[in-house]
Design a protein around this nucleic acid. Structure first.
Lengths: 194, 194
DNA sequence: CTTCATCATGAACCATGATTCAGGTTATTG
DNA sequence: CAATAACCTGAATCATGGTTCATGATGAAG
């Protein structure tokens, strides 16, 4: 069906220059950058962008998806560590801190996080991450450090909620509060308090 | 200085028609509604909008601020109840539920919440709410149900973070998780777990 | 070294939406 | 009932930014 005629050498080169430029621009200025800015950064004319991507949205989507991919990789690494016996809470805290810290200055990752929260279904990459999150939850529950009623949905909620726009101190604080809420020791309706 | 010449009768009437229309439109469709839509809803021509508000931003700001005002009123009511001895956690949960539930379908309130989180300084209305939040925190700590280290900043963080775009069930769940994190019984770094 | 299918260029084109302003209305005052 | 300052109208103007396409270049095949 889709006869994949190999790209002409220069075309291939341009394609990646565009992708890289778009990534750089979107990371720095967010998905609203003008096509012209991307073209300039890539040392190419706007028309060329359109030769490779039908619309701006398509180009942005390509970039953002690669960042979702990246986030999912982090999730997997966390799952690995937790299964290897690491402390559930501190491991999770670490994940949030490093990932969020990086994502905060990265407008593309922000868009990615938003996308994740908005419509839990960016297919491929998310599927990978979903499996990892299941593992995280399972491991955390077994060690007794995560609420017994935790759910994947909760994780997506978490992503949709991270205050990426706040200053670093605020982000750390937020993590602190949220992790406390996730911990098994917290009591949703404490009747034994005092 | 500012010689407040009273508005001509029809002008005053139009002004409020515009404000109401803008509110309705922004609540329904968010701050991106076209000026023309607002004008039409108000039964007035676009030019008239500009006679009363220098720019679109000014008009939107007026509307959004009134919603911040509203939220702050809710905060005060909550403070009152808590000082009157109501259960800290459930009272706070109630506040979040009702306020958020209303705000969720209210694009203007969403923008308002975002504004609150983005730049804690919408002067007047926030000042009012800030005082109330101080009261909430104080009352909560005294009853021993709120973390001893809670801070006003935490509340702003909370507002900046509420997942208004998520479905109702998700919002409720989020509140559950977050309140758990705020409760004094939770232990940030539990060493007595087990 | 031709030849031509691919590819690149970038000015022109379009769509959207905010803002302006010349010309017509109307509330208010005397 | 003038007279006029305040007001209103809405088509025209601007600005922004995505998308197209006629024209010119160039890598690959023979």
């Amino acid at each position: 069906m889709t006869a994949e005629r190999p790209l002409r050498a220069d075309a291939a080169r341009n394609r990646s220059k565009i992708l890289e430029a778009a990534d750089r621009q979107i990371v720095a200025h967010g998905p609203e950058v003008r096509m012209e800015a991307i073209a300039e950064e890539a040392g190419v004319a706007v028309g060329t962008l359109y030769r490779h991507f039908p619309t701006k949205d398509a180009l942005v989507a390509a970039v953002v998806e690669s960042h979702v991919e990246w986030i999912m990789t982090e999730v997997e690494a966390t799952a690995d560590r937790m299964e290897a016996g690491a402390d559930a809470l501190s491991e999770f805290r670490r994940f949030l801190l490093t990932t969020i810290e990086l994502a905060a200055s990265d407008q593309a990752a922000k868009a990615a996080a938003r996308a994740l929260g908005a419509q839990y279904d960016i297919a491929r990459p998310v599927a990978r991450g979903t499996a990892a999150m299941e593992r995280i939850i399972k491991a955390g529950k077994q060690s007794g450090q995560l609420r017994a009623d935790l759910d994947i949905e909760d994780f997506f909620l978490l992503f949709a909620t991270v205050p990426l726009d706040q200053p670093p101190r605020a982000r750390e604080r937020w993590i602190e509060l949220f992790v406390g809420g996730i911990a098994a020791v917290s009591a949703p309706k404490p009747s034994n308090a005092e």
